[in-house]
């Protein structure tokens, strides 16, 4: 088990080093992309401060709580982008038939396809975001308890598992239909609705974002747990739904592989 973990860590390290090197070749593009990501974050944050600063509350949440929801959204989003960036290259693997080269290797195909392309820009952005989050909490902008922090971290991890399951499903769809990009961008757009707490949306959108494509579990519940606003029933629901999604995604992935035609290889 330990030996296997070491092997996977080494593969990830080697692939990540290669990925970072490729980013450093186009330094200008990297700086511009980084500026774009930063501006996108700042513009929306500015908008929230402007809007909720004026109205004082948004769907029952104070300005600081709304900002905290937005910061948590960014944390989950960047974490997922950071570690599951390989999905954006997955289609070319399937279409070109290069997936064969991964399938025959003594390494988990999903790990090699999804995890082994760490985005340097996300790595750069997540560090200041975490620092900002810590300062934000340390300054007492939102009330929380030590157990809240533990639940927050657990639910962030749970959100990552859910996102992983969704990425596996998208990869499976890619194997069967050769279509990945639209599906993953659709996921990103739907998950971006979690920039504000899901409670803000009216029915049936709220239920859709909780039960069908659980953006609540991904983005809203971790922040609510930290602020002590999430009941234990919803916490159990969060873990349960991530577990179900992961189980279904792995079953679907196995099925998708049986349909892989190894085209163009």
């Amino acid at each position: 088990m330990l030996k296997s973990l070491k092997k996977y860590l080494k593969v990830w390290y080697l692939m990540t080093t290669a990925s970072f090197s490729s980013f450093l070749i186009s330094r200008f593009a990297a700086v511009v992309l980084l500026s774009g990501k930063l501006l996108r974050f700042l513009f929306f944050l500015f908008f929230l401060y402007l809007l909720v600063g004026k109205t004082k509350v948004l769907g029952g949440y104070t300005l600081n709580q709304v900002v905290f929801f937005f910061l948590t959204f960014n944390l989950v989003d960047i974490l997922v982008q950071l570690f599951l960036r390989g999905i954006y290259r997955f289609r070319s693997l399937v279409v070109s038939g290069d997936l064969d080269l991964i399938l025959v290797r003594p390494i988990n195909t999903l790990f090699r396809s999804l995890v082994c392309w760490t985005d340097l820009l996300d790595f750069i952005t997540i560090v200041p975001l975490i620092i900002y989050l810590i300062i934000f909490l340390a300054n007492g902008q939102v009330a929380f308890s030590p157990i809240g922090i533990l639940l927050y971290l657990l639910l962030i991890l749970n959100a990552f598992v859910l996102a992983l399951a969704i990425h596996i499903i998208v990869a499976g769809v890619g194997v069967i239909t050769y279509e990945v990009d639209n599906a993953i961008w659709l996921y990103r757009d739907i998950s971006s609705m979690g920039r504000i707490p899901i409670d803000v949306y009216m029915e049936p959108v709220r239920s859709l974002l909780t039960f069908v494509l659980p953006v609540s579990v991904l983005m809203t519940f971790p922040a609510k747990a930290l602020m002590g606003l999430l009941s234990w029933q919803w916490m159990i629901f969060s873990f349960l739904i991530s577990g179900i999604f992961l189980w279904v995604s792995l079953r679907f992935w196995k099925y998708a592989l049986t349909r892989y035609s190894s085209a163009s290889s």
Binding site: T55, G59, M193
Partner: peptide, 23 residues
């Protein structure tokens, strides 16, 4: 899919402003 994404982007802003005008 591009149009579906466009609708999703609309819904975010639509509901955000709608809740602002509740009070």
């Amino acid at each position: 899919m591009w149009r579906v994404r466009s609708v999703i982007q609309l819904l975010l802003l639509y509901f955000l402003w709608l809740v602002i005008f509740q009070k």
